[in-house]
Design a protein around this nucleic acid. Sequence first.
DNA 1: GGTGTTGTTCGATAGTTGTCGAACAAGGGT
DNA 2: ACCCTTGTTCGACAACTATCGAACAACACC
Lengths: 101, 101
Amino acid sequence: MEPHEPDLTAVPVTAVLAALADDVRLQIVRALAEGGEAACGSFDFGVSKATRSHHLKVLREAGLTRTRAAGTSRLVRLRRDEVDKRYPGLLDAVLTPRPPA
Amino acid sequence: MEPHEPDLTAVPVTAVLAALADDVRLQIVRALAEGGEAACGSFDFGVSKATRSHHLKVLREAGLTRTRAAGTSRLVRLRRDEVDKRYPGLLDAVLTPRPPA
DNA sequence: GGTGTTGTTCGATAGTTGTCGAACAAGGGT
DNA sequence: ACCCTTGTTCGACAACTATCGAACAACACC
């Protein structure tokens, strides 16, 4: 099935924000921003693979990531340029872990 | 009771994003960004006053707004400087309504 | 073909959230 | 004192969401 990767302009901003407003997903996005393309299985943040698949789906359908098949794996990457173009500063503001002070 | 307006540094990013990830709240924030200080009642976006009060509470507890009493009203304002300082670009990226194209 | 790896999908469930009406509280006016 | 305006708080309810295990699909490799 087609992975359903909408254009960012077709996604309401609230959906983009909601996609980023989850701790697990934010960790995934941060890992992608640092490490580039990565397999789904490389994100072990203490959740089951079913949950991980769910989170990746949310990110994908929010227009934040792109997925392509590679053997038995699927490689995910952040659509950084597109996000930066439509929401300048958003990823920068959100990606870096902030000290509590 | 004290209105509980936490410092932004004490609020997790996900809570800030979640606060912005709602259509009604986003409209409130946009109105505040444009019009400055405003009474709670001035935000009529098709929800009851109970719901409106709830949304304002979410924004306040996310560290995004400040509230002060003024007669029978309460005046709300956006903590723009503080938000911009901690999350540069976030409000700019999110505040302006984007055309679907 | 069989086995193992990698993900997705399907219920199910528990928790969270948006919404409302009604009740309550605090002020201002008359 | 009385009423009206303005907000908050309190259940209640529906909708959504994060989570899991189990079942399934696709591919690689032997």
